[in-house]
Amino acid sequence: MKNNIDYSELIKLRDVSKTYGSEGNDRNALNPVNISLHQGEFVLLIGPSGSGKTTLLTLVAGFQPTTGGDIFLFNKRIQSYSGRDLQRLRASSIGFVFQQFHLLESLSVIENILLVTKFAGIEKGVAIKKAEDLLNRFDVGHLRNSSPVKLSQGEKQRIAVIRALINDAPLIIADEPTGNLSTDQGMAIIRLLKEFVTSENKLVIVASHDERIAEFADRILVIKDGTLKERRS
């Protein structure tokens, strides 16, 4: 799938809106949004809790349908992807980083990382080598066989970032990645993501309410009460 896609404009939103609730009792979570996001951009989606950040991320990843407008993901209208296409896309072309890390506690660190390579159909030998390279690059090689339960918050988030990067996904979606980390740990994670954007030409979208991330962002999208505006950094 990757080879047939023009990645320069990875995401385009055209009049995308989202409303929750039933008719007559609905609530606008996202007012119409028009924006394009490209390869090599580090995008900060900033706004207070409940402003619509997560809603926007989940719409872009195809986890829920829009109420209005069109989302083009990898130059294709998201509604035209089948459920199986979206599953494959999430496995191979989108990396996710969550606020709660969401590592599987029943698996070791390396198994957590290799799980997504299995979903993406990457050959095991290649995947193990790449996982070990990334673990060393992120200074957590010694945790290879540890259980996530025994890791610190910062270590957990590093492993979660490695899991998002292992498949060479052109798009990384991070939802409040520093939310459960100390300032130092949080900035270290953001710095690592930024490095990858630069060196690997990826599009990284970070949703956060932390203004300190702004210094790393190429583009800053401010969202408040469901309305998105771009702020020039």
Partner: peptide
Amino acid sequence: RKEYAIMKAIGSPRFY
């Protein structure tokens, strides 16, 4: 439940 939701989010095929 949470583990299965995570697996679905990161691209697990249904058969897995």
